[in-house]
């Protein structure tokens, strides 16, 4: 079954655009593109339906009650801690 991956930021405009582009490339390079559908959005539109997604990557601060489900996407913007972040995402895709 394909996993639904949500990429969100504060506005759904800037950083989630960059992160979505990078995730798409990474999925293709690793032959995972058929296993995942990507969704890009802003956090305020998603909080009430967060459970619809299998994997959530956020570049912005999330409320405490969903923090455990969310993977920090900032490494895609700074280049620091990238491998660890990709490992977590890959783990969730193959779960």
């Amino acid at each position: 079954m394909t996993k639904k991956l949500l990429i969100m930021c504060g506005t759904g405009v800037a950083t989630s655009t960059v992160v979505t582009g990078k995730m798409k490339t990474w999925l293709e390079e690793n032959g995972l593109e058929d296993k995942v559908t990507l969704h890009q959005s802003k956090i305020s539109d998603e909080l009430n339906r967060i459970d619809d997604y299998d994997i959530i990557v956020s570049t912005t601060i999330v409320p405490d009650d969903i923090r455990d489900k969310v993977i920090d996407g900032v490494p895609l913007l700074t280049g620091m801690g990238l491998d660890e972040m990709y490992d977590r995402i890959e783990g969730k895709i193959n779960q």
């Binding site: 759904g12 405009v13 800037a14 989630s16 655009t17 960059v18 582009g21 990078k22 890009q40 895609l76 913007l77 700074t78 280049g79």
Partner: peptide, 21 residues
């Protein structure tokens, strides 16, 4: 950033982030 259509400004935004790194 003044972004009006994220879909059209992907490359610009990606280049910017690349530059920041």
């Amino acid at each position: 950033l003044a972004v009006d259509a994220p879909g059209e400004q992907v490359t610009t935004l990606q280049n910017l982030i690349e530059m920041v790194q």
